[in-house]
Design a protein around this nucleic acid. Structure first.
Lengths: 158, 158
DNA sequence: GGCAAGCTACTCGGATACACGGTGTCCGAGTGCATGGGG
DNA sequence: CCCCATGCACTCGGACACCGTGTATCCGAGTAGCTTGCC
């Protein structure tokens, strides 16, 4: 899995605590990660419609909708792509003992098992929203933790 | 995910139908895949203790235990490694607003959500055994399908 | 005929090149804000 | 004093190199079975 997923999730959580756009460079120095590379991930989020990019002097990124309506699965799929990790290459139709194509209308048993597992994985990620993560962060580090970060993101402090 | 996982699973299923060792080269030509590369995957299965490698003139690979005791998860972990796909880099401890290390005894909320999803994925894969897959194959293609492959694996037919 | 030594051929196992996707970076296009001049 | 044109600085967006992991391959170590010679 791409390591940028973690950065994107953290960015979404901190964007919960602000209303004004936050530039990618500021999010980068908050997490101490390469600014240009994080910009790449945010572009992916923008393409997926999770965040809105506003340009201009005081531009940046803002969440497009309520954090309660953005699931972790949305973010993961935006970064890593919607395709499943396991892709069946239909090797049952190859080789000397190949099954005839007319008998392969349904996915093979192995493909079904892997698809079922990935479905469970997606269901688990889809049941957690960014709002849930933000609440957990407040619970872990005390109320006001996110507000402090939000305040830091606003002005031009280093 | 590594593409060799699919090959390894198919190999385990067909090994269900034989009792004598099957060489890697024969499994390779059955599935029409690069022989040397499939050998690499089988070596991983051997290292994980799922199959036993016997050397000599009529050597090959055999399952070490009943197919009902080998789960799909075992095979996947043997090929792709036991480590989780998502690894938390603890970026919360980096940057200007870093959380103090003494407040980071437990995994962060994001790490927990990802770990929970992977746990669900593993549970799903762990609930399916190679014997289940073999039964599904018989159900899909009719009884005797695996027996036919097993018979083909034995002699030296091309 | 039975047995044992030697040989052969076949097997696995680890060490070795190649390729593609993820990682990291750069510069150009576009836009909102600030400024300065005019009415 | 208010409004508008101009310039600027800051933003995102896509196009360009680099590296690590997975993909594919090869040759050497080891062993079971066959052959052959001897008893």
């Amino acid at each position: 899995m791409s390591g940028g997923v973690e950065w994107a999730l953290h960015c979404c959580v901190v964007l919960t605590s602000v209303e004004e756009p936050v530039p990618a460079a500021r999010l980068a120095q908050l997490h101490d990660v390469p600014p240009t590379y994080l910009a790449k991930q945010l572009q992916a989020l923008s393409r997926a419609g999770l965040v809105q990019a506003v340009q201009g002097k005081s531009g940046g990124y803002v969440l497009t909708r309520s954090p309660a309506l953005i699931t972790v699965l949305d973010v993961v799929q935006a970064i890593d792509g919607p395709g499943p990790a396991f892709v069946c290459t239909e090797i049952r139709q190859r080789g000397p003992m190949a099954s005839p194509p007319e008998a392969c209308t349904a996915p093979c048993a192995i493909s079904r098992a892997m698809a079922s597992a990935e479905s469970a994985w997606r269901a688990s990620l889809g049941s957690v929203t960014i709002a849930d993560l933000a609440r957990d962060v407040e619970s872990d580090y005390g109320s006001g933790a996110l507000a402090g970060i939000g305040a830091w993101l606003g002005p031009a402090d280093s």
